[in-house]
């Protein structure tokens, strides 16, 4: 079983500032979601509400069809892993893992196996861990929680590339083994894009877009080929990003109408999907209105 999540007219204020305003969001069970947004856009606030870390100022939040707030049967099966984890720094790594057993579904054996894979020193104090190891510990606890809704909020920070890769692979393996709902909040967009089924973009406290990954990728195109041909086809189109190596150029454009697509094909250009990161930058550009 995995959890659906619903936010209905949810607002969260910090004093007089709206962290989230009138948010409506429906997440189906058993999918991997990417939650994207610029710094301060409201990603962490959104996740905090889903995990009942905070109470909304107004609105309703349902997880698995039930209110999440103070609902032990639900929150015990929802895991939000924040950057660096929420540990008692005076605990040993082993004790921090054992604390996860507060959740009836926590799999200690799996946690210890992961700890070995991520080379976590079980006897060391949490406060003595490097940032990367601490992040790995947080990831281990999140995976071993065996929750029905698991959320990782920038949990990769401090991890080196091999550790991040191992984490993503383990996340995917766990997901395939036991389908559940996963939300990944990250700034390393292209790194996780291949794992995502749907993407939610939060901007200035509101849901800017919530679509399947393919829909985002179809919102633009990447044209690759001889620089002159790329420039000719891209002229008049909104260019999101450009890269050139020697005489070969790649241009990401926001939209490719059928006419431009025909011209690109006729020029022998390769037409690929738009990079999620380029599109994200474009959609959340501060000067852009009504995106």
């Amino acid at each position: 079983m995995s959890f659906t999540a619903s936010l209905r007219d949810v607002t969260l204020k910090y004093k007089d500032t709206d962290a989230l305003a009138d948010v409506n969001l429906e997440l189906e069970a058993g999918k991997i979601y990417g939650l994207l947004g610029r710094n301060g856009a409201g990603k962490t606030s959104l996740l905090s509400l889903l995990a009942a870390f905070r109470k909304p100022t107004s609105g309703e939040i349902l997880i698995g069809g039930e209110p999440v707030w103070e609902n032990a049967a639900v929150v015990s099966r929802v895991a939000l892993i924040r950057e660096g984890g929420d540990f008692d720094d005076a605990d040993t790594v082993k004790a921090a893992i054992d604390t996860g057993q507060i959740r009836p579904g926590f799999d200690t054996e799996y946690a210890l196996k992961l700890a070995e894979r991520f080379e976590l020193p079980l006897k060391k104090k949490v406060r003595e861990l490097s940032r990367g190891k601490r992040s790995a510990l947080a990831a281990v606890c999140g995976l071993a929680a065996r929750a029905e809704l698991t959320m990782f909020d920038e949990v990769h920070l401090g991890m080196d590339a091999p550790t991040r890769d191992a984490f993503y692979k383990e996340l995917l393996a766990e997901y395939m083994d036991r389908p559940h709902t996963v939300i990944l909040s990250t700034h390393l967009i292209d790194e996780v894009a291949n794992y995502l089924e749907e993407v939610i973009i939060v901007d200035r406290g509101r849901i800017l877009r919530h679509e399947e990954l393919e829909v985002f990728q179809g919102m633009g195109a990447t044209l690759t080929g001889p620089a002159a041909a790329v420039d000719a086809v891209a002229a008049g189109l909104e260019v999101l990003a450009e890269q050139q190596l020697g005489g070969t150029k790649a241009a990401t454009v926001a939209a490719l109408d059928p006419g431009a697509r025909e011209r690109a094909a006729a020029s022998g250009l390769e037409i690929g999907p738009v990079g999620l990161q380029d599109l994200f930058i474009h959609l959340t550009e501060p000067t852009r209105k009504g995106a």
Binding site: E70, V75, V78, R82, D88
Partner: peptide, 16 residues
Amino acid sequence: FTLVPNMIAAGMTRRE
């Protein structure tokens, strides 16, 4: 002071 974030993050309710 220490238990509030640890226990709530570990899936306990405030009443518990």
